[in-house]
Design a binder for these strands. Structure first.
Lengths: 269, 269
DNA sequence: CGCTCTGTTGACCTTGATCAATTTAGGTGG
DNA sequence: CCACCTAAATTGATCAAGGTCAACAGAGCG
């Protein structure tokens, strides 16, 4: 820790960066962004997209371990991950951490800060990560004018509630192995949606983060990985995961998840 | 079961009711509602309130056990509880139920249905319960016009995300006793906000519902109630709870809950 | 080359689930 | 009003899942 002690540069007053990444590289309009069909702009027409684009700020990437915001920070903006990944977490008074979620490209962070106007969670980069900053008051103003944007914003928030509910099911009544299986299937689905491989990916988070997120001891996570590997469900090499028997894992997870796109046909509607 | 077999009347085409409760009793405008400072109308001015009021539908109360909506029901409206209480839950394919939450007067249900346009959870009355139905497309249209309403809607959804996050902490890393203590403190806070007694209330839900919600066996819940009672923290008589040592319970819950109004001074900001 | 951080594996123990037996309350019908 | 029935709650006894403690092994970095 500490060779890069200027954390939180993102929330510092804007300053020119002539460093590693040139501003031109960062300035990619929503229109040209491969993630536009995943994050906010879904279903917004071309003209309106320009308006949205105008309020979005692209910043220099965060280094691994750098914070996007801290607990209690004043709420100004929500953020969309462009590349890399984040974890959000709180620290309870006795100092122990609770990981609340991981954010992949195309996903938004900070929606939980609207209510109280300050961030209840901290967000930290798990690897080199770049984000789009979306000033919330401007977004709100804009979404009053653009019907599609308002609807999309509500949809995204609703989806977040839904995902959290899904997590409650997992934490509330699944066994350790079901939790890890569900976690992996969930990640896999999210990667696939973003155009990454669904069966082969790197975990940017530590075993400890996974365990913490799933309400398990890190040792349990580790044991389960080796067990899943022995059973031929997947292969693990440190951070790299390859899912070998996705169906079996899915069954294992005891899923029914309205939230994920289920690999089997819908039985009701 | 079954003397009242006409469930889901609420979602049937409107029909005149000359029965138990007269329509005049039900027709209470938002303006006159004691809950308006809790549910949606917060911070909306008098004129706009009339507009909001115009789209809200007040229905005859639900009987205990009746459903407000079922899993998979088409999403039309969100609902605000006026009196009584609801539980929301899903049923996994193996038939077991997961209770996702309890709704008290002034709280909204159905926000998680916006994303997919259908209800991921069922909502069932725990006792005689009346609700306001708020057609969502009209609400959305209105909130494009009334800035305060849009903001309030986003705030409420954000708060819901926050509460769910809080629940994840509880399910993810608290002991059985901490969970129950946190649950009781949480309920108590919610009752207080609504003008009910904070230290004395009735649980409209069964031990089994509580256990399910908290990720505990119902036997564990029962045992904890008697233990808390023996320790002088509270007194239980079947459904009736009296909190005798709220501070101790609060400490017990291992809380830090940015979500609740903490009884101690804030240490940071 | 050694230090530290992350991950793996093993041994043991605690918490809370499960199974089972009663008790109590509330609702129903004679 | 009482006897009966069922659902909810309590309490006890047992057991297993997973947490905790501890030792060790690689990987990455200075």
């Amino acid at each position: 820790m500490g060779f890069l002690s200027r954390e939180r540069v993102l929330s510092m007053p804007t300053r020119k960066l002539e460093s590693v990444v040139s501003l031109n590289d960062i300035r990619v309009a929503c229109k040209a962004c491969s993630l536009k069909e995943i994050c906010l702009p879904v279903g917004i027409d071309k003209d309106d997209l320009d308006h949205l684009d105008a309020i979005i700020d692209r910043k220099r990437p965060l280094a691994r371990g750098e914070h996007l915001f801290h607990v209690g920070d004043n709420f100004q903006s929500i953020y969309a991950v462009r590349s890399g990944s984040l974890k959000t977490y709180t620290t309870s008074e006795d100092g122990q951490e609770q990981v609340m979620g991981f954010q992949l490209p195309g996903e938004l962070v900070g929606l939980d800060a609207i209510a109280e106007n300050c961030h209840p969670l901290a967000a930290k980069a798990l690897e080199t990560t770049s984000v789009c900053e979306i000033p919330f008051d401007e977004l709100e103003k804009l979404s009053g004018q653009i019907g599609g944007l308002q609807h999309q914003l509500l949809r995204v928030m609703s989806q977040e509630i839904r995902d959290d509910e899904q997590n409650m099911v997992i934490l509330g009544q699944k066994s350790a192995e079901q939790r890890l299986a569900a976690f992996l299937i969930g990640l896999s689905n999210r990667f696939r949606r973003r155009g990454f491989s669904a069966n082969q990916f790197n975990l940017s988070m530590s075993r400890s983060d996974i365990g913490n997120y799933l309400g398990l001891a890190l040792e349990t996570v580790s044991r389960l990985f080796t067990r899943f590997q022995n059973e031929g469900l997947l292969s693990v090499d440190r951070k790299h995961i390859e899912l070998l028997d996705r169906d079996q894992l899915y069954t294992f997870s005891g899923a029914h998840c309205a939230a994920d796109e289920a690999p089997k046909a819908q039985t009701e509607n």
